[in-house]
Computed example of a mutant assay.
Amino acid sequence: MRYDKGHKDDTRRHILDVASTRFRKSGIAAVGLAGIMSEAGLTNGAFYTHFASKEELVREVLNDALTRREERHKANLENGIALETTIRDYLSTRHRDRAGTGCPTAALVAEIARHPKATRDAFTGKVADIISLMAEQIRQGSAKERRRKAIAIYSTMVGALQLARAVNDRELSDEILEDAAETAVTIASES
């Protein structure tokens, strides 16, 4: 059967999108290739036309999802959107409740620590880029001070989102998000 031009790229993109959502929602270890391919409407054998292994898929998902997040940070910077807006959007109940489409760092960071060096290298590079973009949004202090603040803010955001998702008390979860947002905004505005 002959496919239209771009079919292979479209299929690869679809597999990435399905895997990205499933990984963020359920965790990398809990999601098998068979489930990804079934949800994508493809056979298991078709997977290897696009990826050499599940680990390659994980790296591609991380790269893609973190590149998209990085692009949002760049757009915010270019459009003069304050870091406070980014912080409050990230630490929102909407983001907490949509893990499957949310930040891959918060959803997957604990698992990434156990993956091979190549995957961790890809993750590290993207996280460093995001931290650099956040540092550019901080207006006060030397470059070193802005970077230190950006690391503290990003760490607070990721950790708070993870904690807010983990607790089963909705009121406490909301409080975690609100208090972490206030703390992160305070760090961003300190001189």
Rank of each mutant, 00 (worst) to 15 (best):
S142W: 08
E70C: 02
A106E: 08
V18Y: 01
S191Q: 11
E60I: 01
T21G: 06
T43N: 07
A106L: 03
E111K: 08
D10G: 14
S132E: 15
K54T: 08
E178C: 01
G80Y: 08
E171I: 14
R88G: 02
E111R: 11
T49L: 11
E145Y: 02
V109G: 01
L172M: 13
G35K: 07
K8M: 06
I15G: 02
L91R: 12
V158G: 04
P104R: 03
N63K: 09
E136Q: 14
T93C: 03
G159C: 11
V109S: 14
A110G: 14
D4H: 04
A29M: 04
A184R: 07
D179Q: 15
D17A: 12
Y154D: 14
T21A: 07
K126Q: 15
E39P: 00
A184W: 01
V158S: 13
A181M: 10
E145V: 05
S191E: 12
E60D: 12
R24P: 03
K25Y: 08
P104N: 10
S173N: 05
V18A: 04
L161G: 03
A166W: 07
R165T: 09
I15E: 02
R22T: 06
T85C: 03
L77I: 03
A113P: 00
A166Y: 11
A46R: 12
K117R: 15
L108I: 11
K126H: 11
D10F: 09
T49N: 15
L57F: 03
A65K: 03
P104A: 14
A164P: 06
D89A: 05
H73P: 00
K126N: 05
R88P: 00
A180Y: 07
T67H: 10
I138G: 01
E56P: 04
Y48P: 09
A75T: 12
Y3M: 13
T49P: 00
R24T: 03
V185C: 14
L172I: 15
I151P: 00
D169Y: 06
R12G: 08
N79K: 14
A164I: 08
V31P: 02
K149S: 11
K117W: 10
A46N: 11
G27C: 06
L172T: 13
E84A: 09
P116Q: 13
A143N: 11
Y3Q: 15
K25L: 08
L57Y: 02
S20C: 06
A113T: 14
